Amino acid sequence: MTKQEITELYGKEDKIQFNLYQYGGLRIAYRDDVVVQFFLSINDNQSNRFQTYREIGLGDSLEQLLANYGEKHANLSDSYGATRITYIVKKNGNELETVDFNDPALKTGDKKSLYFIDFACDAEVTVINIGDLESIQNMQ
Rank of each mutant, 00 (worst) to 15 (best):
residue 2 T to K: 10
residue 2 T to P: 04
residue 2 T to V: 07
residue 3 K to V: 07
residue 4 Q to P: 01
residue 4 Q to E: 14
residue 5 E to F: 03
residue 5 E to R: 07
residue 5 E to C: 05
residue 6 I to Y: 00
residue 6 I to D: 02
residue 6 I to M: 12
residue 8 E to L: 13
residue 8 E to V: 10
residue 9 L to Y: 04
residue 9 L to Q: 12
residue 10 Y to C: 09
residue 11 G to V: 07
residue 13 E to K: 14
residue 13 E to R: 12
residue 13 E to D: 11
residue 14 D to E: 13
residue 15 K to Q: 06
residue 17 Q to R: 09
residue 17 Q to N: 13
residue 19 N to P: 00
residue 19 N to S: 13
residue 22 Q to S: 13
residue 24 G to A: 14
residue 25 G to E: 11
residue 25 G to H: 08
residue 28 I to P: 00
residue 29 A to P: 01
residue 30 Y to F: 14
residue 31 R to T: 07
residue 32 D to F: 07
residue 34 V to F: 04
residue 34 V to P: 04
residue 35 V to T: 07
residue 36 V to Y: 02
residue 38 F to M: 08
residue 38 F to I: 10
residue 39 F to I: 07
residue 40 L to E: 06
residue 42 I to D: 07
residue 43 N to K: 10
residue 44 D to P: 02
residue 44 D to V: 03
residue 46 Q to D: 14
residue 48 N to T: 15
residue 50 F to L: 08
residue 51 Q to C: 13
residue 51 Q to F: 11
residue 51 Q to Y: 12
residue 52 T to C: 03
residue 52 T to I: 09
residue 53 Y to P: 04
residue 54 R to P: 00
residue 55 E to N: 08
residue 58 L to N: 00
residue 58 L to I: 13
residue 59 G to K: 08
residue 60 D to E: 12
residue 61 S to W: 01
residue 63 E to P: 02
residue 63 E to D: 11
residue 64 Q to G: 11
residue 65 L to G: 00
residue 68 N to G: 05
residue 69 Y to M: 09
residue 70 G to P: 01
residue 72 K to H: 13
residue 73 H to P: 01
residue 74 A to V: 11
residue 75 N to M: 10
residue 76 L to M: 11
residue 77 S to G: 14
residue 78 D to L: 01
residue 78 D to C: 04
residue 80 Y to N: 10
residue 80 Y to M: 11
residue 81 G to N: 00
residue 82 A to R: 10
residue 83 T to N: 03
residue 84 R to A: 08
residue 85 I to M: 00
residue 86 T to F: 02
residue 87 Y to F: 05
residue 88 I to P: 00
residue 89 V to Q: 10
residue 90 K to P: 04
residue 91 K to V: 08
residue 91 K to T: 08
residue 93 G to A: 12
residue 94 N to K: 11
residue 95 E to L: 14
residue 96 L to W: 03
residue 97 E to I: 12
residue 97 E to Y: 03
residue 98 T to R: 08
residue 98 T to E: 09
residue 99 V to S: 03
residue 100 D to L: 06
residue 100 D to V: 11
residue 104 P to E: 14
residue 105 A to N: 15
residue 106 L to I: 09
residue 107 K to N: 06
residue 108 T to H: 05
residue 109 G to N: 05
residue 110 D to N: 14
residue 113 S to Y: 07
residue 114 L to Q: 12
residue 114 L to A: 08
residue 114 L to T: 12
residue 115 Y to L: 04
residue 115 Y to K: 02
residue 116 F to N: 11
residue 116 F to T: 13
residue 116 F to W: 13
residue 117 I to M: 06
residue 118 D to P: 02
residue 119 F to M: 04
residue 120 A to N: 09
residue 120 A to Y: 01
residue 121 C to W: 00
residue 121 C to Q: 08
residue 122 D to G: 04
residue 123 A to V: 10
residue 123 A to G: 09
residue 124 E to Q: 15
residue 124 E to V: 15
residue 128 I to Q: 02
residue 129 N to G: 06
residue 130 I to P: 00
residue 133 L to K: 01
residue 134 E to V: 15
residue 136 I to R: 04
residue 137 Q to L: 06
residue 138 N to H: 09
residue 139 M to P: 01
residue 139 M to D: 10
residue 140 Q to Y: 07
